[in-house]
Design a protein around this nucleic acid. Structure first.
Length: 155
DNA sequence: GCCAACGTTGGC
DNA sequence: GCCAACGTTGGC
């Protein structure tokens, strides 16, 4: 079992949207980066846990915990011409993009801000990919030790 | 709005 | 295969 961090812009889809979704479950569609795609397709398994991270917003940070409930499968939004995630390079018989399903597991009572995570960047969270300079990946793996420490900060 | 970092594209 | 130009991400 592995741990992850998944970014989403709350203006587009935040933890409130996930909480309001049927079965509090959603397909994590729209990832259009090859490194992240490979993790969705090859590495993320049902039972894995992930932090739900709010990015590109007034207060970026971790908003909760989700569980992967379905491992990688083709992202149908790439085939939908009306979707903002439409990509004609993805073919029905040769999908280019993948998604997983995640279910809300824990909604933080208060957001754990990026600034707080940074306070531990040279100590307990040394090496956390999210904190690495220039990191832009929307999905990143999280070490077990980092996971446990961040959980201890989450309220 | 600014800017750093990084990915993608396309000419050669 | 190289690399410049361009686009995107995302914090501030």
């Amino acid at each position: 079992m592995r741990y992850w961090l998944m970014k989403s812009e709350p203006d587009t889809f935040g933890i409130d949207d996930l909480a309001a979704a049927p079965k509090q479950t959603t397909s994590w569609e729209g990832v259009r980066n090859f490194q992240a795609r490979n993790m969705l397709r090859d590495d993320m398994q049902a039972g894995d846990l992930a932090f739900f991270y709010h990015s590109s917003c007034p207060e970026p940070g971790i908003a909760g915990v989700v569980e992967v409930v379905r491992s990688g499968y083709p992202d149908a939004s790439a085939w939908n011409a009306r979707s903002p995630y439409h990509d004609p390079k993805s073919l029905e018989n040769k999908p280019l993009w993948y998604t997983v399903d995640v279910r809300l597991k824990q909604r933080a009572r208060q957001l754990l801000p990026l600034a707080v995570l940074r306070e531990h960047a040279t100590q307990q969270l040394d090496g956390l990919l999210l904190l690495r300079r220039g990191n832009r990946l929307s999905i990143t793996p999280v070490d077990r030790a980092h996971w446990k420490f961040i959980l201890s900060l989450l309220r």
